[in-house]
């Protein structure tokens, strides 16, 4: 059996050696063609996870634990080899389409750049591909000329350009960090659909980062809930949604408009959104016990002594086990 496409095995990211841990022992496996949703409040470490995989963490951060891509140990890879993976086999789409594109470079040149770099194509060849990619992402010529600049496009159109850029070299893994967060609601669905199609066509694996449960429920087969730099619950999307074993998952759900709609009795009044009290603890001030204890509605005395590890629940399916890092996992359904 060949190595999994992406394997995180206790991935830890700290500020300097032995410094404050920003990510603590993340473990997950992603195979070709799979779609994994990574959810959590802002500040829980989703973007850092993505940057760790890309090998683009800020200089002062240190990576430890396992991080393998197609069998290669990424942190140990020389920069030159890592660079050849970036954009070629692992591609990334960023949250802010307004600032993530270079304002003084034409979109054609920006899409073609990756192919010229990685595949050694001539300018003309790469631009021909760029033209096809633009057509594919819904920006047909001649209206959307390769010579256009980012400021001549709307936010949604720019995000389409980002998707074309990311898909340009046919990557095996596509990381999308909040690809729809900065967009108008009306455009969000279109961009997600497009992303879905592109992944379908290329057979790439998708790591979809979002804080929007609605987005994952539509797109991901599997979900990992992150909190304070760790995964607190993971499993098949339906199973996690059906049970919400970790109190944090429940809170996230109760706080999202998507969860709200699901809970609403037909014809009944719209229940109020319940924000989770408190905030994600600052990385420097994370407790040694359960990191969620200070905000948890189900906290017990032992929660303040022990740091729970991800453990299988009985509700796990055949393909992906359902895991939660909680001493007192919820039995099922949402708390009223």
């Amino acid at each position: 059996m060949s190595a999994p496409l992406l394997e995180l095995d206790g991935l830890t990211v700290a500020l300097g050696t032995g410094g404050v841990e920003l990510l603590s022992g993340l473990s997950l496996v992603l195979e070709r063609g799979e779609r994994l949703g990574l959810v959590g409040e802002s500040g829980s470490g989703k973007s850092l996870t993505a940057l760790a995989i890309m090998g683009l963490l800020p200089e002062q951060m240190r990576v430890s634990g396992g991080l393998r891509f197609a069998g290669d140990d990424l942190p140990a890879l020389p920069e030159e080899r890592m660079r050849r993976l970036r954009g070629r086999r692992i591609a990334m789409i960023f949250q802010e389409p307004m600032t993530a594109l270079n304002p003084v470079m034409s979109i054609g040149a920006q899409i073609a750049e990756g192919r010229r770099l990685h595949l050694g194509e001539s300018r003309a060849e790469a631009e021909a591909v760029a033209r096809r990619l633009l057509d594919r992402v819904g920006l047909p010529g001649p209206r959307f000329d390769l010579g256009l600049y980012p400021h001549q496009l709307s936010g949604g159109q720019r995000q389409r350009v980002m998707i074309a850029m990311a898909a340009a070299c046919g990557p095996d893994l596509l990381i999308a960090d909040e690809p729809t967060t900065a967009l108008d609601v009306t455009v969000q669905a279109q961009i997600l659909d497009l992303l879905d199609e592109i992944v379908e066509e290329t057979g790439a694996a998708l790591l979809l980062i979002t804080h929007d449960l609605g987005v994952v429920s539509e797109t991901a087969d599997r979900i990992a809930v992150m909190y304070a730099g760790r995964i607190v619950e993971t499993g098949a999307t339906e199973e996690v949604f059906a049970r919400m074993a970790h109190p944090y998952s429940q809170g996230l759900f109760a706080a999202s408009p998507y969860g709200l709609d699901l809970r609403r009795a037909p014809g009944g009044p719209r229940p109020r959104l319940k924000a989770i009290p408190g905030m994600v603890p600052d990385p420097a001030r994370r407790p040694a016990h359960c990191v969620f204890a200070e905000r948890c509605g189900f906290v017990q005395p032992d929660c303040l002594r022990i740091s729970p590890r991800l453990a299988p629940l009985d509700s796990g399916g055949a393909r992906w086990p359902h895991l939660a890092a909680c001493l007192h996992p919820r039995a099922g359904g949402l708390a009223p």
Binding site: R86, L101, M165
Partner: peptide, 13 residues
């Protein structure tokens, strides 16, 4: 700026 990160993510040195 963000587009520098984009460029690096594309595989530029």
């Amino acid at each position: 700026e963000d587009f520098i990160r984009t460029a690096r993510a594309k595989g530029l040195t």
